[in-house]
Design a protein around this nucleic acid. Structure first.
Length: 286
DNA sequence: CGTAGACCCTGCGCGC
DNA sequence: TGCGCGCAGGGTCTAC
């Protein structure tokens, strides 16, 4: 479900509602996600703490609270975080419910932040804000393709080429390597390569600088376009208010096997790379 | 050493 | 209608 645009969409929907509010009771219902959920630790470091900021690193949502703690959530493939009223019926696979004090939402009803994740590939844990970057979940992560602050420089073609130096393997796998570049998952890797006209199986050793430049542009462009559309809802993505995204209607190749390329009408092809589906146009991508 | 594949888990849509 | 199969937006570990 969630790549960078979906997590960013979630972040933007939660930020105005959460900042300034205080977590009340924390209830962990299932112990084992991708890593075991430590309900006692979450309660100890979140209960009674006011939310200071809602940030994002790669596909992780970061909620900073008082006391130097950051509450970290990763949605995995099927995770969802939504604001709910206390009397909204619980859903299946709701692993974590965080109570909120009275806040700024319209009628003051949304007093819970709920984390639901049927496939349980997601994560929720707390970490010291100050040393977050050194945490084992973050230490190895590469560059942010979409700048989160004016200080963060967007990626460019020369940088991508330098990262590919000495590597081998197909460019699509390279784009999805989080030690190089974060946030680009299976959908947006395919879409960025389509926009750049590069075949997903092309070796990173066989890409000229001009094409790296074009690719750097299309990565940023496709992510920003998707954010502007509120993310891609294929199945179950929703933001914190339960809103769906709209970028799925803009997808050029992802999930369109056999359908005509929007540019040349050739049937879109599906292949498998590293156990994941890759979609591309055999005519437009070389 | 880097890269490719298996695997974690549940749910859904499809074809028979 | 019911069932089995393949597939799903991620990340990590292991075996080459």
């Amino acid at each position: 479900m969630p790549e960078l645009p979906e997590v960013e969409t979630l972040r933007r929907s939660l930020e105005p509602v959460l900042v300034g509010r205080t977590f009340t009771r924390v209830m962990a219902r299932t112990p084992k996600l991708r890593e075991p959920l430590d309900g006692a630790e979450l309660a100890r470091r979140l209960e009674g703490r006011r939310v200071l900021a809602v940030r994002r690193r790669a596909k992780y949502l970061l909620i900073d609270v008082e006391g130097g703690t950051t509450f970290v959530v990763h949605l995995g493939m099927s995770g969802r975080m939504v604001l709910a009223a206390a009397d909204d019926p619980p859903e299946l696979h709701e692993h974590l419910v965080l109570g909120l004090d009275e806040g700024a939402d319209e009628d003051g009803r949304l007093r819970q932040l709920r984390f639901r994740d049927p496939r349980r590939f997601g994560l929720a844990f707390v970490v010291d804000t100050e040393t977050l970057a050194d945490d084992r979940h973050f230490a190895h992560l590469g560059a942010e393709p979409v700048s989160r602050s004016p200080a963060e420089r967007p990626i460019d073609g020369a940088w991508l080429r330098a990262q590919a130096e000495g590597r081998r393997g197909p460019v699509k796998t390279f784009l999805m390597d989080a030690t190089v570049l974060v946030g680009v998952g299976n959908i947006y890797a395919a879409e960025a390569l389509y926009r750049a006209g590069i075949h997903p199986k092309r070796s990173v050793k066989r890409i000229a600088l001009a094409r790296w430049r074009r690719l750097a542009e299309t990565i940023v462009e496709v992510l920003e376009d998707a954010i502007a559309e509120g993310g891609t809802t294929l199945n179950d993505f929703r933001d914190g208010a339960g809103q769906e995204g709209y970028f799925q209607v803009s997808l050029a190749v992802y999930g369109r096997e056999g359908e005509p390329c929007r540019r040349c009408a050739s049937p879109v092809r599906r292949i498998v790379q590293s156990n994941r589906s890759t979609f591309y146009c055999p005519q437009c991508q070389t």
